[in-house]
């Protein structure tokens, strides 16, 4: 297929996934911000909850270039409706629709209509955030993302285009889950000594909920929530749909299909990252240091993104 088409499909999927993840993160942040932190853990320098989404997304610098103070209202504005922030939910939905429109012949009509309807509803939804409540808005964003994924799964030909959509989804998701796990450890726990210490139930359940893993955790472990298990669940378990391992399973599978003799590097790199997760153990992660482990992972996936870009999406003149 056309490289430009592959690129638009890949980025369309990434933008939808990013909008969903941002909505998840903000939803949890809203809930956390209602908890009486400081009183619960006296003496601990908990991070202000509204800083978390900025640190997770790596957008703190951009934020402070626009806003002087940290406030719920400003963070929500910046990450939901600010179109000058290319990672805001509104900008992501817009970009996804623009991509879909640019290649509407390559996706099913149901998919395009779904994207278009999201875009048409977005403005009125954003205007009603105050009235409806933020949770309702974030639920709507998640629902739209689910619907689109469902329309894709249910109607799209399993061709190369489908592979690039899936690739975009999992590349974005892997990146997001790694950031969420990392930031929770580092911002919620001031030092590594606290890992595994007395951590508030709500913070852990919030972390799990933000990646729809709370119920799964209960089902699998039937026990209290501990950091080691959370790390295992969200990094190493391949039956958790948002875990790093599950994402890399998909990515590696897709690249094995897409790569040919002259484009083996993306496949090799994906295989390398996948093997680490496939054969990894939690002990080893904590020995390395969770943060260091996740940084190394983000570094490798970013390299992989570059390889995908160079081999498929933006080819040099032939």
């Amino acid at each position: 297929m056309l490289s430009r088409t592959a690129s638009e499909l890949y980025w369309m999927a990434r933008h939808i996934e990013r909008a969903e993840n941002t909505a998840r993160m903000l939803d949890i942040t809203s809930q956390l911000s209602l908890l009486p932190y400081r009183q619960m853990e006296p003496g601990q320098s908990w991070a202000e909850p509204w800083a978390i989404p900025l640190i997770t997304t790596g957008l703190a610098t951009d934020y402070y270039a626009r806003y002087s103070e940290l406030s719920a209202e400003s963070v929500l504005n910046f990450l939901v409706s600010d179109r000058s922030n290319p990672s805001s939910i509104a900008a992501c939905m817009n970009a996804a629709r623009e991509s879909g429109r640019a290649v509407r012949g390559s996706i099913s009509q149901e998919m395009y209509e779904d994207l278009n309807l999201t875009w048409l509803e977005l403005q009125s939804r954003m205007e009603r955030i105050q009235a409806d409540g933020t949770s309702e808005f974030f639920d709507w964003v998640k629902r739209r993302s689910h619907l689109f994924r469902g329309a894709t799964f249910g109607t799209m030909l399993r061709d190369e285009g489908y592979s690039f959509i899936r690739l975009g989804t999992f590349m974005e998701r892997a990146d997001n889950t790694a950031r969420i796990v990392d930031v929770k450890y580092y911002t919620l726990l001031p030092s590594l000594d606290d890992v595994g210490g007395a951590v508030d139930y709500y913070q852990w359940s919030a972390l799990l909920r933000s990646v729809s893993a709370f119920e799964a955790y209960r089902k699998i472990y039937r026990d209290t929530i501990t950091p080691v298990r959370v790390a295992e669940l969200l990094i190493l378990r391949d039956d958790m749909p948002r875990s790093l391992h599950a994402c890399m399973n998909e990515i590696y599978d897709i690249l094995k299909r897409l790569c040919e003799a002259d484009s083996l590097e993306p496949e090799r790199l994906a295989g390398e990252i996948h093997a680490q997760l496939h054969y990894g153990r939690t002990e080893q992660i904590f020995t390395t240091g969770l943060h260091e482990y996740l940084m190394a992972f983000l570094d490798k996936t970013s390299q992989l993104g570059q390889e995908i870009n160079d081999h498929f999406l933006v080819p040099s003149l032939g």
């Binding site: 490289s3 509407r104 390559s106 190369e160 690039f164 080819p315």
Partner: peptide, 27 residues
């Protein structure tokens, strides 16, 4: 879409030795 052919923009095409090609994911 209805013809089942690629929709291309100018930047998707290039000419080499008087032959027109499109950039695809397979070269």
């Amino acid at each position: 879409q209805r013809m089942g052919v690629e929709l291309v923009e100018g930047r998707d095409l290039f000419v080499k030795d008087c032959v027109v090609y499109m950039h695809t994911t397979r070269g």
